[in-house]
Structures are given as C-alpha cells and as structure tokens.
Design a protein around this nucleic acid. Sequence first.
DNA 1: AGCCAACGTTGGCCGTGCCAACGATACACA
DNA 2: TGTGTATCGTTGGCACGGCCAACGTTGGCT
Lengths: 152, 152
Amino acid sequence: MDGHWAPERLRSMPSWLINQTSVRAHRLVSEKLSAVDAHRYHYSTLAALDELGAMSQAELGRRCGLDRSDVAAVVAELADRKFVRRVTDADDRRRNIVSITASGRRRLTTLDGLLRDTQKQLLVPLSAAEREDLVRLLLRVVEDAAADRPQS
Amino acid sequence: MDGHWAPERLRSMPSWLINQTSVRAHRLVSEKLSAVDAHRYHYSTLAALDELGAMSQAELGRRCGLDRSDVAAVVAELADRKFVRRVTDADDRRRNIVSITASGRRRLTTLDGLLRDTQKQLLVPLSAAEREDLVRLLLRVVEDAAADRPQS
DNA sequence: AGCCAACGTTGGCCGTGCCAACGATACACA
DNA sequence: TGTGTATCGTTGGCACGGCCAACGTTGGCT
C-alpha cells in the first residue's frame, strides 16, 4: 500500500520476480527451520532417502542438486544426530551408503509440517489452484534446466 | 532425460522450485551481463531512473529493493561511467539526486535486449501465455511480501 | 537549543553455490 | 601385470549476494 512500486521493467521481468520471491522464501524457510535447529539441506536429504531409499552421497547430491562437498557436511550432521546411517559400500568401497533411520523419519515428518506452513505463508495471496499452476510452471523450467546440464 | 529425478517432496515444494529457478536465472543473467561488464543492480537502477525520473539514492533503494549501501556502490560505478549524474539536492543537502544520462539510456537499451534474450532462454519450455501467467503469479507474491514489510 | 529522524558512506558479517585438490578405490586395456 | 582414467568422499577455500552497524551530516520538530 505504499504507493511506490518498482519500475515496470522489473515488475514484468521473470528473473527479477523469481529472485525477489526466492529471497523471501529463503528467509521464511530459514527462520522456521533454524527454530528447530534444522537446515534446508537436511530436509532435501531426508526426503530423498525416505522416498528413494538408501543411496550413495554422490547420488544424493545428483538427486537434490547439491555439491558433493555440501552433501558430505550434511550427512555428517545428520549422522551425528542419528537421523541417518552411513556405512561404506562393501561392493564399492569408494561409496558411502546412506540410509534414513526411524528417528530420521520422525524428524522428516516434523519438517514436513513446518515447511507446509511456510509454503502457505509464502503463497498466501494465491488460491490453491494458482499455487498448483505456479508449481507446474516452475517444475517445467527446472526440469528443462536439468536436461540442459547433462550430468549431475 | 537422465531418468533420475529429485524427490517428489522437493518437486512439489514451491520454495524449492523457486530457489532452483532463481539459481539458474541468476547464473544466466550474470553471464550475459558480465559479458558487457554490467551488473544486475546496474539494470535495476537505470530502469528505475528512466521510468520514474531522477530520485535520491534512498528512494532508489526502496524502489528496487536494494540496501542503501549497495545503492551507494552502484551509483558510484554508474556515475564513473557517465551513465548517471549525481548531485547533492540543494533543498535537502542530505540527499543525492541521481538522474540518468543520454548514454545511460543507450546503455539501458543494450541491457534491455540482453535481458530479453535471457528471459527467453530461461523460460524456453513455456509458451508466451504461460510466461505471462508465471509473471502474474509471482508479481502477486512479491507485492504481498512488500505489503507485509511496511517501510523500505 | 535540543532531540530525533533520514541520508550517504564505509566496513564487515554470514549463508550459498561452487571449485580445487587430495587420497582411496574401481575399472579398462595393453 | 602394470598403467592410465574415472569416480568417490573429504577438506579447504573462494565469490557473490543480502544485510547490518556505525559514523558524520543534515533537516525537521518543539
């Protein structure tokens, strides 16, 4: 209601709008997660392990779009808190096989609830149908980008 | 086409999709702009000055969503290259009145073209109508966020 | 005069996404 | 069998973006 808006060129530029939204989303999500001493990467990792089963850190990184070095740090944190088990693969001793634990699943449920609330807060001006539209459009963009960058 | 996708929880989470898209958009935009030795903030600033006329650095920051300190740096750079004039306001000597120059307008036109191409590249999987939908949805989210945070 | 608020500027902090390098291991092929 | 190439996990670090704190300056209010 200020009456002073951003220039039209920015208000109609997808990359600018996406970035503005991303900054806000990041702030909301980080606040909520840090309140329970969690991190965005923790959620991505737990979700991947829960849905797709145990896998190596490298594949974890590919699935979630994380760098190997960041995966190593996150897995170490999750393993410390027993949300995740990490054992070296007997068939390929370069790999660490990471799997989610029972308490990891409970943790994931907690974070699910937290993040569901946050999404609602972020998209409060949109109807349910519009939120689905937004997700569908963004998903197509993200998958197109993933197709561009062959590996990883 | 890899056949290995991100977990469904991420693929359906708005904040994750927005962030993924933002990272990609930022990479594309930065590449294009740095090729002509420009910066995202330069474009925002020039666009605001062109559309809304001369204004102080503080208002520039409010319009574009930039911090005062960043505005100071950007204006200094643009002034060095004569894309912008900066004079202290005679009526209020705390303020710097910043205005765009003729060569600044030419510069803006160049960046307009560059960024138009980049948006196309980013949203290549979407139709024109879908791109408009996306912009409309995101704009509502951004304006809602701006309404939340009263000042600034 | 006194206090408070806004301005521009400098310096710095922290999180993120990423890269480089290393040792260890697996695999291909001569 | 040996040699080169590739992948893995790990550590350390870099660059950038968004943001905050502090300061001196200036203006408005009472």
